[in-house]
Design a binder for these strands. Structure first.
Lengths: 138, 138
DNA sequence: GTATCTGCAAAACATTTGCAATTCT
DNA sequence: AGAATTGCAAATGTTTTGCAGATAC
């Protein structure tokens, strides 16, 4: 689940997205901070460098990224939409104490052996919740 | 993933919930219609029989059910919270065309063989999206 | 110079909260 | 009567939309 993008502008262009300054910075944020951020986290982080940035643009941009399939939505929690630039199939674990979200490798071959054969699957989401190692040792 | 509840009132009482008329009808709806409904679906369906019902009560009741662990939340989709009275671990497949949600048996033993061992898991959610058999044949 | 992109303000929703009225025992 | 429950109206929070001004090619 690793991606290495030297040139974000090129990457966006190849995905059919005009690489505006805001779009580049938002995508760069997702790639550099693999923190599965909310819109608010992205907005607050980038506001420092782009004082004119609006939340509308963050929403518009993320929706464009999703449409062009370079960003995934994570809805592990009600009323907390998060975004992920890693497009490989993987799972997410959210710690109930610290709130951090961890990436989980999923061996999903075994899951295919059930009723799922009847469906044409386009998306797979694996979410787990509990207590992470660090919080358990406190 | 089958539950058979003859007496909803008793079931609620045993779960530490006072079985008011509204609570019984809402839980009954969930058990009888395994359609993973939204708040709005429950509200509209029950309004016919309980004209004075308010959405606040549906929200309050579902939150109580979740707290008492007799109902699960399904957040397969952004801005579309759904509810399920089946508490066994299982997955959900949502058809992008007809919008229907199907229950999926999950053999999750194989998933345990990865980084998940590091976490104390309390909840597991398996969501899939795509096209169901019926919609594929149209 | 024309298309597109951005960002403000308002609208649209979903959910929660405060509180008064109702219900149940 | 007393405690819990219900339901209205208002508040909150998130995401979308309309549109005017800014930007890019």
């Amino acid at each position: 689940m690793e991606i290495h993008i030297e040139n974000v502008g090129e990457y966006l262009k190849n995905s059919g997205i005009k690489p505006s300054y805001q779009r580049i910075r938002i995508f760069q944020y997702l790639v550099e901070n693999r923190n599965h951020p909310t819109v608010d986290m992205i907005y607050k982080a980038l506001c420092a460098e782009i004082p004119t940035l609006s939340k509308t643009t963050v929403y518009n941009t993320l929706n464009l990224f999703i449409e062009k399939k370079i960003v995934n939505v994570i809805v592990i929690e009600e009323n907390e939409t998060r975004y992920d630039s890693v497009m490989d199939v993987h799972g997410h674990f959210k710690c109930e104490k610290c709130g951090k979200i961890f990436d989980i490798d999923i061996d999903n071959e075994h899951l295919k052996d059930n009723r799922l054969k009847e469906f044409e699957i386009k998306e797979q989401h694996y979410y787990f919740k509990g207590i992470c190692k660090d919080c358990a040792n406190k």
